[in-house]
Computed example of a mutant assay.
Amino acid sequence: MTAVDSQPSGPRSPEQRKREALERLAGDNDVWVATADATGEPCLVPLAFWWDGETVWLSTRDTNPTGRNLCASGRVRLCFGHSRDVVLVHGTARTLTREELPAEVGDAFAAKDGWDPREDHPSYVFFQVTPQVLQAWGTVPEMAGRTLMRDGKWLV
Score class of each variant (00 low, 15 high):
C79P: 08
P117G: 09
F127W: 00
E41F: 06
L70Q: 01
A26D: 15
R77E: 12
Q132G: 09
K112G: 01
V76S: 03
D120H: 12
A93C: 03
S83L: 11
R61Q: 14
R98F: 04
R98N: 07
D5Q: 14
D5R: 13
T63W: 02
D62A: 07
L78P: 11
D107L: 04
V45P: 05
G53C: 02
K112W: 00
L58V: 00
R84D: 12
C43R: 12
K18M: 12
D30L: 12
P11D: 13
K18I: 05
L47C: 04
S13L: 06
R61Y: 09
L44W: 06
Q7M: 15
V125C: 09
V133W: 07
L134D: 10
V156C: 09
E15D: 11
T63E: 15
A34M: 01
R61N: 10
T139V: 11
G40T: 14
G145K: 07
S6D: 14
E23N: 10
P65R: 09
T147K: 13
R17D: 05
R84W: 12
R19A: 15
E20V: 04
P11A: 14
E54I: 03
T55R: 02
H82R: 03
D62Y: 03
Q16R: 15
Q128E: 14
M1R: 10
P102E: 11
W57S: 01
F109Y: 05
D107S: 07
D116L: 01
D62E: 08
Q128L: 12
T92C: 13
Q132I: 11
A3F: 10
G40H: 06
E142F: 12
K153A: 13
R61H: 13
W51L: 01
G67D: 09
